[in-house]
């Protein structure tokens, strides 16, 4: 089965057709929780991509060694290990980002996207396909988070990636960096995304 997978399709499906955030609604907690700025969204996206890629690689490599009854706990240990590594590395070398993302770093463990890919894809496919799958899904996740973060930052703080676009004391739509703004901005982005993906396909 693995041989007939179209690798190009395999990679790109995560970015548009099966985009984890806009289409599959996976990993919504970090999506909403950390995207008050473009930089935070990007940071969370990259951290998730790393965990996703590494867990897909390991799961794909050990898939035949794991008895199927214990596969879920085994995958969870693999994922949790990589999450802990990310946590320690961020705390050591990027303390600013570590503080901003806070509780959502350990919570990468329960991001349904990662366990979902491990179970639904990596445990059934070759290493190469699993790497492409993880990269595609991870990049799709990064795009979604960065986009949402950038939109919220632009409307809510009047800046983009910390570059101020309006006067220091200008009034901005503060709503968008507050919790309700996360839901509302994502709602309209999802509408837009639906519209675009319907048109293109």
């Amino acid at each position: 089965m693995a041989a007939i997978i179209n690798q190009k399709e395999n990679f790109f499906k995560g970015i548009v057709k099966e985009n984890p955030v806009f289409v599959m609604l996976l990993g919504m907690c970090p999506t909403l929780g950390v995207t008050s700025s473009g930089f935070n969204g990007l940071g969370m996206g990259v951290a998730t991509l790393f965990v996703l890629l590494m867990s897909n690689i390991v799961v794909s490599l050990i898939k035949n060694q794991i008895p199927s009854k214990v596969r879920i706990p085994a995958f969870i240990i693999v994922i949790a290990s990589f999450v802990t590594i990310v946590e320690m590395v961020l705390e050591a070398f990027m303390p600013f980002l570590y503080e901003q993302l806070g509780i959502f770093i350990p919570l990468i463990v329960v991001n349904c996207l990662i366990l979902g890919r491990a179970e639904a894809f990596a445990s059934k496919n070759t290493l190469f396909s699993s790497v492409l799958d993880a990269l595609g899904m991870g990049i799709g996740f990064i795009i979604a988070l960065t986009l949402l973060g950038a939109v919220r930052e632009l409307l809510g703080s009047g800046s983009i990636f910390d570059i101020k676009l309006v006067a220091e004391n200008a009034n901005t739509f503060i709503l968008f960096i507050l919790p309700p703004g996360a839901f509302i901005a994502l709602a309209y982005l999802a509408v837009l995304f639906n519209k675009i993906s319907i048109k293109t396909s």
């Binding site: 199927s68 085994a74 802990t84």
Partner: peptide
Amino acid sequence: MKKKESTLINMVAAMLLITLIAGFSLGFVN
């Protein structure tokens, strides 16, 4: 390669091994 059967020994051995590897590598990174 054939998939390992879900016998008790296999399950315990696999989990033990994974936990050990995870524990040691985390200790190392720590």
